[in-house]
């Protein structure tokens, strides 16, 4: 699906990380020391932030959104829509976005959506917000992305434990002069490659689902926790992302060398290096910010932009930005935007 949506701008981006962080070396107590060092070297992740046990994703959303309102001068009344992209909602029913409408003081005339996506979620959230604004339904929409995902990773799942981290972001989409190009894809045949099998209606939690089962490579996976087949995800990312990026640029009428920043989902160091090589760009135009926060799924792009924005502003890299996400579903998408007038805040401690 490709579409050009007009009368838009991304006006503000704010992101935050929980106070508590874990040095990956701490996992040497639980896993083989050599293994931990090897994974750390390969993924580029040295520490990750972990949500406080007493906090839900929406609690971080409230802190972040209220701080954004304080810094920007917005109030809840200024928003006519809210989109909450997360895999860790407060409840199964109702949608967390509706609860956030009340907690953030948005008017009752606001429209509220939950969207269940992970690493591609930022693109989905911006697309939904852009539809609302471009159609004239809303003047301004708040997009929340983030997860308390470490709770979904089993403590013995060494690969995911050492690369994933908790992080959150809010982005404001409002009426403006831009036309943004969106390019979104889905392939449900790969749904089992990133998968939390138990806990829904197809396989409710039970004594049986508490036990590990073997994956196709003979490794244990835990049905009540998120499983990821790393090799299949690498295959998916390298097969699908480079052609989709090129297709999006062609659709937007942008040349590869005109793009100031390729704001990619921060999966891990190696995948980003592979993608940069295959797309044909140097890493100075594809910033990597993983070292002290890991892969923060749907919040990874705005967190990267918050961390890197001073460097990106200095080299005038924000007027043509390609934002790209890929992951659970499988799903992948990209959009083009001008972020040169966007207020991008430094990362806040939450």
């Amino acid at each position: 699906m490709k579409v050009k949506l007009s009368n838009l701008k991304i006006s503000h981006i704010a992101s935050g990380l929980p106070k508590h962080s874990i040095d990956i070396s701490e996992y040497e107590k639980f896993f083989n020391e050599k293994e931990v060092k090897r994974i750390k070297k390969s993924t580029g992740v040295e520490s990750v932030h972990v949500a406080d046990e007493s906090m839900c994703t929406s609690d971080y959303g409230v802190i972040l959104a209220k701080r954004l309102m304080q810094e920007s001068g917005f109030t809840g009344d200024d928003f006519e829509g809210i989109v909450f992209i997360s895999q860790t909602p407060d409840y199964r029913v109702p949608a967390t976005s509706v609860i956030l409408q009340d907690r953030l003081g948005l008017p009752q005339s606001a429209v509220a959506f939950d969207i269940n996506y992970g690493c591609s979620g930022y693109v989905y959230g911006l697309y939904q917000a852009a539809l609302l604004v471009s159609s004239g339904s809303c003047r301004r929409v708040l997009v929340f992305t983030g997860d308390t995902q470490l709770r979904m990773i089993h403590e013995q799942d060494r690969g995911n434990r050492m690369v994933l981290g908790d992080g959150f972001a809010v982005t404001v989409v409002e009426r403006g002069p831009q036309t943004m190009c969106f390019n979104i894809h889905s392939d449900g045949s790969g749904y089992q490659y990133i998968f939390m099998e138990a806990g829904g209606w197809r396989l409710p939690k039970s004594a049986e689902t508490e036990q590990p089962v073997m994956d196709k490579n003979g490794h244990p996976r835990w049905p009540e926790y998120t499983y990821m087949d790393g090799l299949e995800i690498m295959n998916f990312a390298l097969s699908q992302v480079p052609p989709m990026v090129k297709d999006t640029l062609e659709y937007a009428g942008w040349q590869l060398d005109e793009v100031g920043t390729f704001a990619m989902h921060q999966a891990n160091q190696l995948i980003l290096e592979f993608l940069a090589k295959r797309i044909g760009v140097s890493l100075d135009r594809m910033p990597i910010e993983l070292k002290h926060m890991g892969n923060t799924v749907s919040a990874s792009v705005p967190l990267m932009l918050s961390k890197a924005h001073k460097k990106l502003v200095a080299r005038k890299g924000l007027s043509k930005v390609l934002i790209c996400g890929f992951g659970v579903g499988l799903s992948w998408g990209a959009l083009t935007a001008d972020l040169s007038d966007t207020v991008i805040y430094d990362t806040w401690e939450l």
Binding site: H219, G230, N268, F274
Partner: peptide
């Protein structure tokens, strides 16, 4: 072979290919 030793897991494979 892939997965025959702990070092050649999916992370090791990415690093090996690179």
């Amino acid at each position: 072979a892939f997965d025959s030793i702990p070092e050649w897991d999916s992370v090791g494979h990415m690093r090996l290919m690179a």
